[in-house]
Each structure stands twice: as C-alpha cells, then as structure tokens.
C-alpha cells in the first residue's frame, strides 16, 4: 500500500547497490520523469513563489483529507521556505480554527496563532480511514517517504550528481498519472488506476483539475503546474532546512579541502626526514639523534 519505496541502501566500499524487492509478479511502474527543481544540486534553493503556490494547492485541495501535523504556522514565515511575512503567516494562522479549552475547561475553537501546528482534517485515524478505506497519509514527511528504484548504475551516479529528488519527482508524476485502466486490468471497487503507483490501484481519486486553484502570479493553472508546485511545497515541508544545509555544506567542504591541503604539505614536511633518499636508512635512529 505504501508507495513502493525505493532503496537507497548501497554498498559503498564496493560499488553495489540495493534495490527494493518488488513482488515477483508485479511489474515495475514506469520511472517518473525527472523534473528540474530549484532546490536540486549543491547550490539549490527553494523558489518562494513556487512554495507559496504549492501551499495554496495544499490548502485548497490536499488539506481536505491530508494532515500536515509536523508543521506550524510560524514555519510559513521561514525566509528560506515560502517566505511569507510574519504578518501574512499570522493572518493565515488566524483563518484556521484550533481546538482548545477555555478557562472553565470547556472545549472551544479559537483562531490559530503562529505557534500552533496545522490542524488535522480528521479528529482521529479511524475517522480518516472511514473516508477512503485507508487513512490519507500525513504530508509532513511525504516527499522524503516516497521515491522509486533507481537501479544500477544510477544509484552510483547519484552519489556524485547529488540526485535526491526522487520524492518530488514521484509525487509530481503520481498526481498526473491517472489513466483509464488498460484492458484486462482488474481494478477493485473504489480503486483508481494510476500509472506511477506501485500496483497501479490507488485509493485516492484524481485530486487536481485544470483551473481548480487560482494563481495570482500568472503561472499556468494546469494540473501539471499544480502537481509540480505541491511537490516542491512538500519537499520544503519535509526538509525545511535544505537551503541552510547546502549553504553550510559548501563552506564546510571548502574548509575541509583547504585543511586537507595544508595537512598534506605538513605531513610531507614532517616525513621528509625519513623519506628523503639520502636519509632513508635512518628511521627512528635519526630522529632520535636529533631529539
């Protein structure tokens, strides 16, 4: 049921990888097309406008069924994420109803605050399950919890190209992957045929239609664009510190390379005494004499 997660287990010291065990009889779903993402590569950054559009799609479409439990409204003001102003984030928060209790212990609903987390659409898992027969997964870590099998030799290439976007690629492909079932495919009642979903029988009906969400920045209001924007938003939701990580990573790598260079020459200098040809017969005897 869980999307076919792929494997990233790798045998580093050799050059071997691992792949997911796909049930024998089940043919492998097609590889999701590889999209270009602003956040890929060593200098990747989130595209604020895209995340804001993606958030709009989440809010108007996905949030009907999918929770986003791990995110708080304050996260929307993350300057490296969607980059809403604090006032905007506060405004968005106040438009949500948060369950609380008042001074007398009575349950109330109050407007959300920045510190509040996104309220779930269902009061509990059983209620969520009742909707489609399976509980719609929480979306907080979804972009890191989905992927597809890279296979040999790509899993080795990925180490060097830093390809880490299987999750958003899969999500974007999945959202556009609804098709008529091919002849001979037995689609169980309540199921929907999706080209990219492992086993092809997914519980979620096609969630997006062209023109469904209004964009005010002139971006095309198509399923294709919606799918890409929500996938980018979910990547940020799953990995909010990606920008800081890559920025610090570059600094750390430069530093380590400089230090390694200095240490290499220091090492050469220290070993000069025992490695220089004219002294090569000395070893510890020579260094002791000098000490």
């Amino acid at each position: 049921m869980k999307a076919k997660s792929t494997i990233r287990a790798v045998f580093v010291f050799g050059a071997l990888a691992a792949g997911t065990a796909v049930a024998a009889a089940q043919e492998e779903p097609p590889t999701p097309p590889r999209l270009s993402w602003s956040f890929s590569g060593p200098f990747g950054k989130y595209d604020q406008a895209q995340l804001q559009r993606g958030f709009k799609v989440y809010r108007e479409v996905c949030s009907t069924c999918h929770s986003l439990n791990l995110l708080a409204f304050r996260d929307l003001a993350d300057p490296y994420g969607p980059g809403f102003s604090e006032a905007q984030a506060q405004q968005i928060a106040s438009e949500y109803k948060i369950k609380d209790i008042d001074d007398k212990g009575q349950p109330i609903e109050r407007p959300g605050r920045l510190a509040d987390h996104f309220p779930p659409p269902f009061p509990n898992e059983a209620a969520a399950k009742a909707t489609y027969g399976v509980a719609p997964p929480d979306m907080s870590t979804l972009a890191k919890a989905r992927g597809y099998r890279r296979g040999f030799p790509w899993f080795i290439v990925d180490i060097f190209t830093q390809y880490q976007e299987e999750g958003p690629d899969y999500i974007a492909a999945y959202l556009q992957g609804y098709r008529e079932p091919p002849k001979g495919f037995e689609l169980p009642a309540g199921g929907h045929y999706n080209e990219y979903f492992p086993g092809h029988n997914t519980a979620m009906p096609p969630p997006l239609q062209d023109g469904q969400v209004a964009y005010d920045d002139g971006s095309p209001q198509t399923v294709q664009q919606y799918a890409k924007d929500i996938a980018a938003f979910l990547m940020w939701a799953a990995e909010p510190h990606l920008v800081a990580r890559k920025r610090i990573g570059f600094q750390v790598l430069i530093y380590l390379i400089v230090l390694a260079g200095l240490l290499y020459f220091t090492k050469k200098r220290v070993w000069h005494a025992v490695e220089a040809p004219h002294e090569s017969a000395s070893g510890q005897a020579a260094t002791k004499a000098g000490a």
Partner: peptide
Amino acid sequence: CIVFAWFVFYIPNYLLHPDNYI
C-alpha cells in the same frame, strides 16, 4: 571527513530508507 561531509550536507538521505520517514 570530506566524504562524510558530502553525504551529510548534499545527500543525507541517500543511505536512509524512505520508509523510515513513515
């Protein structure tokens, strides 16, 4: 550490299994 940092900063989830984010 250069190899280590490459994994930590650029491909931190490469060796982790996606299912462990569920």
